[in-house]
């Protein structure tokens, strides 16, 4: 439920452009709102423009029509692509320069979404009269495709360095392989964690003493 946040962001603009009709405008826009948080800037842009032009009912319709598609688009872009990509790039760096990894992660992730958020706001404002067409042009397909292509090799790279970094490659691959098989069988993460804790304690009592790659 992001209705309060949406209203909070829109409020100063509504107060400015609605004049004596502001009370109706407030009522229109304090309602159900749920989308990907990064994509909400586009809807804010659309609604701002339509409210500015005195087309309040259209702005509600546009808001309601855009929430779902932009939510799906944003979840796919930011949660399924940008986040794993920026985490894996930073993890790959961490083996060589551990303290720089969080900074690189913050830089990559925030540079993309903050730039996009500003762009979405102005794009929404510009495309307020054909918001669906404008939204279809937002998805940054080229960047997403490149991130998608690089994520899987990066994942393999991080695993490869980590496995040898522990100095117990056999045990590490056993733990990874067991978890992988359980995920393939649709097990839930907490259950996998529980099973592997037992396995790890058993392995520990058998002797393997895993080293943590980032400790010098």
């Amino acid at each position: 439920m992001q209705g309060l946040g949406f209203f909070y962001s829109l409020f100063p603009w509504l107060a400015k452009v609605s004049g004596r009709h502001s009370r109706e405008a407030y009522h229109r826009h304090l309602g159900y709102f749920n989308t990907n948080p990064y994509m909400s800037s586009y809807i804010l842009g659309v609604v701002s423009r339509l409210e500015e032009e005195g087309r309040g009912d259209e702005s509600v319709k546009a808001r309601n029509n855009l929430m779902g598609p932009l939510g799906a688009m944003g979840d796919n872009y930011y949660w399924a692509k940008l986040l794993p990509f920026s985490v894996l790039v930073s993890l790959a760096l961490s083996f060589f320069w551990a303290s720089a990894a969080p900074l690189l992660f913050l830089f990559i992730y925030n540079a993309v979404h903050l730039t996009n958020r500003w762009g979405y706001l102005s794009s929404g404002y510009r495309n307020a009269h054909s918001p669906q067409e404008g939204a279809a042009r937002l998805n940054g397909r080229g960047l997403q495709r490149n991130m998608e292509r690089l994520t899987t090799p990066l994942l393999g790279f991080v695993l490869g360095v980590a496995v040898f970094g522990t100095q117990t490659p056999g045990t590490s691959l056993l733990v990874f392989g067991a978890a992988f098989m359980m995920f393939r069988r649709q097990w839930k993460t907490p259950a996998i964690f529980g099973v592997l804790v037992v396995l790890a304690i058993f392995l520990g009592f058998l002797g393997p003493n895993m080293r943590i790659p980032w400790f010098g």
Binding site: T168, T189, P208, M210
Partner: peptide, 13 residues
């Protein structure tokens, strides 16, 4: 000691 890297390997898996 083997437990230390569990979250890491489970996440990657």
């Amino acid at each position: 000691a083997v437990l230390a890297m569990l979250p890491f390997f489970i996440g990657l898996a």
